[in-house]
Design a protein around this nucleic acid. Structure first.
Lengths: 226, 226
DNA sequence: CTCTTTTTAGAGTATATACTCTAAAAAGTC
DNA sequence: GACTTTTTAGAGTATATACTCTAAAAAGAG
C-alpha cells in the first residue's frame, strides 16, 4: 500500500479512537513510525488528510442510498439501508463528533458536506417514495416526506454520539457495543412503523424486535412526578 | 455583578459565538479587559468555567420539563415545552457542538451530563404519559414511550447543529434564523402527530403549520433516480 | 551504472495555550 | 486610620501543535 493511503488509514483510526482534536500530525507520524516531514511530503496540511477521509466516507454512503431499479422495494431493504448506514457511521465516527469544527476550518469540506447532506436527504426521500410505490408506506405529502427524511437523518447521524455521551466510562469500545449501535435501527423503525400499511406492520415489528437492546434509555420510575 | 459571574457570562457568549475549542482563557480575559491572572483567581481552570455554565444550563432545562400538577395537560403545553427547550438550547448552543470533547476532559461533567440526559428522558416520558392520561396521545407500551422520548431527544438536541452544518456560510447568525430554529418544533410535531387521537390531529396540524419554515430541507428533484 | 525523481528523516520554528507567581491595588472591617 | 482580606495586573513558563527546511536515502529509467 502507498504511504499516502497508509496515512489516511492511520489518521482515520486515530481520529476515531481519540477524536480529531486530540490527534496531531506529529501523533500520526509517530504512530506510523515515520517523520513529520515525511507526512507533510504527502499532505500539505492536516485539513487535507481530513478532506481525503471525508471523500472516502462520502463515496461509501453515496453507494448505499440507491433504490433498486430491477425490482420492487421491500421492508428488508429498509433494514439493510439502516444497517449499512450505521456501519458506515461507525467506521467514520470521528466526523460527526466535531463536525462543526471540521466544517469551519475547511471551506471545501463545508460546501461538500452540505451537498452530501442534501443528497442523502434526497436519497432518503426517494426511498420513502419507492416504498409508497410498492405498497409499504401509506402515501404522503411531499412536505411530510421531507420531514421524515430529515428526522431520520437526525436520529441516524446522532445516535452514536448520544450513546457515547450517556456512557459512564470514556472508553468508546465499551460504550458502543455492536448491540447498542443496532438499537439505532430499532429507533428509526419506531418512527417508521405508524406510516406503514396495517398488513406490513406485523412483519416490521417482528424485524424491529431483533434490533432491540435494553439498558440504554432509562427505566423510568414515575415516582418523581411534579 | 460579581467578576466571577461576568466571567461565566462572557465565556458563554464567546463559546457560543466561536466554539469552545476556539476560545482560550486568554481570549476570555482579554475580551473582558482583564488579566489572565485575574481569571485564574476566580477559576482554577477552563473546565471549571465550562462546568459552571453547564450547571446553569442544567438548572434551566430542569425547570422546563414539568407536568402541570393543577390541571390536565394540553397540546399547547407540548408546543410550549418545545419552544422553551429550543430557546434554551440556543442560549447554550456551544455545549452540544463539541459535547464529546467536553465530557472526555471532565469526569464530573460526564457523570452530571449523563444523569441530566436520563432525567430529561424520564421527563419526556412523563409528559407523554400525562398526554395519554388527558386523552391526547393514544395509549402505548412503555417501550414505545421510551423510544419516543429518545427519538425526540435526538431530534431536539441536534437540530441546531444540523442547521449550522448545512449552511453555506460559517456565520451562525445568518445560518440560524429564529424561523429556521423554530422549524425544529415542526419536525418534532411531525413525529408526534400520528400518535394523537384523530380528534386532536386537526388542531395539532394547525399549530404545527405556524412553525413551518421552508428553505431548509432540499426540494428534491426525482430525476436522479437509480 | 548514471542520472533523475520520489520518498524519507530529523532537526527546527513560530505560535498558541493553559496556567503560575509575585506583588500591588482595592475593598471591607473595626 | 490601621490592618486584613479580596481582587487585580502583568510578566512569565512549560508544553504542544501545525508546519518548514535541508539533505540524505531509496526507487525508477535509460
Amino acid at each position: 500500500m502507498k504511504t499516502k493511503d497508509k496515512i489516511v488509514l492511520t489518521s482515520l483510526e486515530l481520529f476515531n479512537e481519540r477524536g480529531e482534536r486530540n490527534v496531531s500530525t506529529n501523533h500520526i507520524a509517530a504512530h506510523m513510525g515515520m517523520s513529520p516531514g515525511n507526512l507533510y511530503y504527502h499532505f500539505r496540511n492536516k485539513s487535507d488528510i481530513i478532506y481525503e477521509i471525508f471523500k472516502n466516507y462520502e463515496l461509501m454512503v453515496d453507494s448505499y442510498l440507491h433504490v433498486p431499479s430491477d425490482r420492487a422495494i421491500h421492508i428488508h431493504d429498509l433494514i439493510a439501508y439502516l444497517d449499512a448506514v450505521f456501519n458506515g457511521l461507525w467506521a467514520y465516527r470521528f466526523i460527526h463528533r466535531d463536525l462543526e469544527h471540521l466544517l469551519s476550518s475547511d471551506e471545501r469540506l463545508r460546501q461538500d458536506y452540505r451537498h452530501f447532506t442534501l443528497r442523502c436527504l434526497e436519497g432518503i426521500q426517494r426511498i420513502i417514495l419507492a416504498m409508497e410505490g410498492s405498497g409499504i408506506y401509506r402515501p404522503m405529502e411531499e412536505q411530510q416526506r421531507r420531514s421524515k427524511a430529515l428526522n431520520t437523518w437526525l436520529i441516524v447521524t446522532n445516535w452514536m454520539t448520544y450513546l457515547k455521551s450517556i456512557h459512564a466510562s470514556e472508553n468508546p469500545e465499551e460504550a458502543l457495543s455492536r448491540k447498542s449501535i443496532q438499537h439505532g435501527v430499532y429507533l428509526v423503525l419506531d418512527y417508521v412503523i405508524p406510516y406503514l400499511y396495517e398488513d406490513k406492520r406485523a412483519l416490521a415489528l417482528e424485524l424491529q424486535e431483533k434490533y432491540r437492546f435494553d439498558g440504554i434509555a432509562p427505566k423510568p420510575e414515575m415516582s418523581e412526578a411534579s
